[in-house]
Amino acid sequence: MTPNTARRRETSRRAILTAAFDLLQEIGYAKVSIEGIAARAGVGKQTIYRWWPSKGAVVFDAFLLLSETADGGPPALPDTGDLAADLTLVLRATVEEMNDPRYEQPMRALATEIALDPELAAAYAERLDGPLKEAKRQRLRSAQRAGQLAEGIDLDVAVDLIWGPLFSRWLQRSGSLTVEYADLVVATALTGLRPRP
């Protein structure tokens, strides 16, 4: 019987990504090595280099694995018809993820690698950030069609206004990242900064 090489490759790939993520939490990004990942995953390091050019690329794919939707489809935001409620739900979940000790160190490591590696930054934009931004734009477009947002607003700027403050506060450790802060971001973004007549 011919062994199922595709299944074996996928099993090895998942073992490598799981090992990388576990090691990030246990010893921190600076101490993680390709050799250590290979040993934890039970593969040769040449197997890792066959699929990934760097440690940062392995970490990125580990995040892609974690962010896969259950049905394998593109990401989507909830659309109950109540934009404020939907954004509050999503931003609160974002805060919880950013504060989760299992994810904070790996996310910070990935953010650092993206800042330093143009190829990894391009892959991140294409494979993770781009689809997520499109899901956010789609939700805001739906709100425009329902008359909950002004027709003429730039949706890319709106996405930055809503999600940018959370990432900035988290990345710079410039204040507490709480659900109350997330609620305030949503309220401020949707209300606008100008006084009402």
Rank of each mutant, 00 (worst) to 15 (best):
T69R: 02
R145A: 07
I114Y: 01
I16V: 15
A57R: 04
G81P: 00
E97L: 15
Q172I: 11
L171P: 04
R137K: 15
L23I: 12
D100V: 08
D183A: 02
Y124T: 04
A123V: 07
L23V: 08
R102T: 10
R139S: 12
D100E: 04
R13C: 07
G44P: 03
M98E: 07
W170D: 01
E180H: 09
R139L: 15
A6W: 07
A38M: 08
F21G: 11
S174Y: 02
A143S: 03
D156C: 08
L77Y: 05
L17T: 05
F21C: 09
L65F: 11
E10Y: 07
D183W: 05
V95L: 05
L184G: 11
I27W: 06
G192R: 02
R7F: 06
P75H: 02
R92L: 07
Q172A: 10
F60S: 05
L116Y: 07
R127V: 04
A6V: 14
S33N: 11
L64Y: 08
P101E: 11
T11L: 11
R8Y: 11
G130K: 10
A41N: 09
P118N: 00
E104K: 10
Y124C: 09
W52I: 08
L89S: 14
E126L: 13
R127E: 10
A39L: 14
P3V: 14
R137V: 09
I16S: 01
E134I: 08
W52Q: 12
G73R: 09
I153H: 04
G56E: 06
A182N: 06
G73N: 11
T80G: 06
L83E: 00
M107F: 08
F167R: 14
A158V: 03
M107N: 12
V159N: 03
P106S: 11
L190G: 00
I162W: 01
Y49P: 01
L166F: 01
T69F: 03
P165H: 11
L66C: 10
A111P: 05
